[in-house]
């Protein structure tokens, strides 16, 4: 087969292909030094709050088999600096920008939403799933009622589509997915990192200054695929699947499980051009297997 059509419609956005960057593993200038950002379906920027956050102390990173732990703690320069620096820099590229929103409370999530309403951002991704910030994030993501409450409030304030990012650190992810669907979310992304820990055998202390951190990378892929599969059967919303995607074949696995688009995170730390490599490899895989477009590949799932 000669040509594969990767064009994807995702919650109202028209994308060149279904591949995005995962929040926190992409920076416009720095990633843009390695590849042309316009080749991606969309870019999801690092978590941003209304006001600057200092993040956690270092070390923030620890290596693990097949992945890594991070406890960056959503360090970010605040919405104003984000607009002036990251967003304005991204304007030169032909790529939709999805802003990942952070907050400690419903009010803070609403505040950052309002800060970004009148910008070029194409969609919001509501991060209610960060395991590295004590009082915020994950508290909302592990309780269906609170997840619904923050989704509803942001949805009411937002002038852009709202995607809600789920944490895998729950017993039943479908309950949270249904709650945010009922609360009016436009899309769901999953998964965020799995809570993990490593201990330094020399010092007998945790390797991360924060103690625990979020596990990401190829090690978590089977968990992510399983959760996408479960959520696909629980809700109608478009799904952005992520967690351990390193190759085009990995991306195809998520599409088969029920994702409508995918994001590449940790793989971009291990290989700076991973997101665009995944685009190429996905096209090559589909050509080899004889799928003309993403819908045809998705429809091929037998399960």
């Amino acid at each position: 087969m000669s040509q594969v059509d990767l064009r994807t419609c995702f919650a109202g956005l028209s994308l060149k292909n279904p591949v995005m960057t995962a929040s926190g593993t992409f920076a416009a200038r720095e990633s843009g030094e390695f590849y042309d950002l316009s080749r991606l379906g969309a870019v999801i920027t690092k978590g941003v709050a209304a006001k600057p956050w200092p993040g956690n102390p270092t070390p923030r990173i620890a290596e693990t088999y097949g992945g890594m732990l991070n406890a960056v703690g959503l360090q970010n320069p605040g919405a104003e600096a984000y607009i002036e620096s990251e967003l304005s820099y991204l304007a030169q590229y032909d790529v939709p920008v999805i802003a990942n929103l952070a907050g400690h409370s419903v009010e803070e999530y609403v505040a950052v939403t309002e800060c970004l309403n009148e910008t070029s951002v194409a969609m919001f991704e509501l991060n209610i799933s960060c395991p590295n910030v004590k009082e915020g994030g994950i508290g909302f993501g592990t309780d269906p009622r609170m997840a619904a409450q923050v989704t509803e409030a942001v949805k009411r304030a937002a002038k852009k589509p709202v995607m809600v990012k789920l944490t895998p650190n729950v017993t039943d992810i479908t309950a949270i997915a249904r709650a945010v669907e009922d609360a009016g979310a436009d899309a769901i992304s999953l998964i965020n990192t799995l809570l993990g820990m490593r201990i330094d055998l020399k010092t007998k202390r945790p390797l991360l200054a924060n103690g625990t951190g979020g596990l990401s990378g190829p090690a978590i892929k089977p968990v992510a695929v399983r959760m996408v599969y479960q959520v696909r059967r629980a809700v109608k919303l478009p799904i952005l699947g992520l967690g351990g995607i390193c190759t085009g074949e990995d991306a195809a696995e998520f599409l088969l499980a029920g994702a409508d688009a995918v994001a590449v995170g940790t793989a971009a730390l291990v290989n700076p051009t991973a997101p665009v490599d995944v685009v190429e490899e996905l096209a090559a895989f589909m050509a080899r297997e004889g799928y003309a477009d993403v819908a045809a590949l998705k429809a091929a799932f037998v399960g």
Partner: peptide
């Protein structure tokens, strides 16, 4: 030196603290 995730500026894993004009910056 600091523990790095990406080594090229994308992940903010490797910050250090500077004292610049009386304020701490990362």
């Amino acid at each position: 030196e600091e523990r790095m995730g990406c080594g090229y500026g994308a992940c903010v894993g490797c910050v250090c603290k500077l004292l610049r004009n009386g304020a701490i910056v990362q």
